[in-house]
Simulated assay, not measured.
Amino acid sequence: MTHEVIERYYAAFNAGDAAAMLDCVTDDIEHRVNEGDVRHGRAKFAEFCAHMGVSYRETLRDMVIFSNGDGSRAAAEFTVHGEYLRTDPGLPEAHGQTYVLPAGAFFDLRGGRISRVTTFYNLSDWIRQVSA
C-alpha cells in the first residue's frame, strides 16, 4: 500500500492536481522543504501547492520508490523536469527557463496517508540553470 500512496501522490503532482495530492496526506501533514520553514497542516500544504502551481510547471520522471518493511516510511528518487513560470521572491527572475534537476523525498505514512514529506534537491544547481 505504501508504494501505491506515493505513486498516487506523484501522479497527482505530475497532473497538476493539488486536490488529489491533498487526498494523499493527513490533516496534520508535516512538509519539510529543502530551503525554508516547515509547514504544518493541510491548509499550509495546500497554500504551498497553489503557489507551486503558478510559479513552476514540473514533471517528475525516472521515479524509484523505496519503503521499509511495515510501510511506515518511504523514500523516492526522481528527476525534476521543470519550467520556471513566475518569479519566486528571493530567487532569480522567471522568464520561462527550463531545468532538469535530480531530487528525492522522504516520507512518513500513517493510516494509509502521508504524514510527513521532506524534499531535497540542489538549490545551487537550480539557480545556476535558471540564471544561465
Rank of each mutant, 00 (worst) to 15 (best):
M1G: 12
M1W: 03
V5C: 08
R8Y: 03
R8E: 11
Y9R: 05
Y9H: 15
Y9M: 10
A11W: 09
A11I: 08
A12W: 11
N14Y: 07
A18I: 12
A18T: 11
A18V: 07
A19T: 09
A20W: 06
A20Y: 07
A20E: 11
M21H: 04
M21Q: 15
L22P: 01
L22A: 13
V25N: 00
T26Y: 08
D27K: 10
D27E: 15
D28G: 04
D28A: 13
I29E: 01
H31V: 09
H31R: 11
V33S: 07
N34W: 00
E35T: 10
D37W: 00
R39K: 12
R39H: 12
H40Q: 12
G41P: 03
G41L: 00
R42V: 02
A43R: 10
K44C: 02
F45L: 14
A46S: 15
F48R: 06
C49G: 03
A50G: 05
H51D: 13
H51A: 11
H51M: 15
V54F: 01
S55F: 02
R57N: 11
R61A: 14
V64I: 14
N68I: 09
G69Y: 06
G69E: 15
G71L: 09
S72K: 10
R73H: 13
R73A: 14
A75D: 08
A76K: 04
F78H: 10
F78P: 05
T79S: 11
T79L: 05
T79P: 10
V80Q: 07
V80L: 13
V80F: 08
H81G: 03
G82A: 12
E83K: 14
E83Y: 02
Y84P: 10
L85S: 05
R86I: 07
D88V: 01
G90K: 01
L91A: 07
P92N: 04
P92W: 00
E93S: 11
A94K: 03
A94H: 03
H95L: 02
T98P: 03
Y99S: 04
L101D: 12
P102H: 00
A103N: 04
A105Y: 02
F107G: 00
L109F: 02
G111S: 12
S115F: 06
T119L: 08
N122I: 02
N122H: 05
S124C: 07
S124H: 10
D125T: 12
D125S: 14
I127N: 08
I127W: 08
R128Q: 14
Q129L: 13
Q129Y: 07
Q129E: 14
V130D: 12
S131V: 08
S131N: 06
A132I: 00
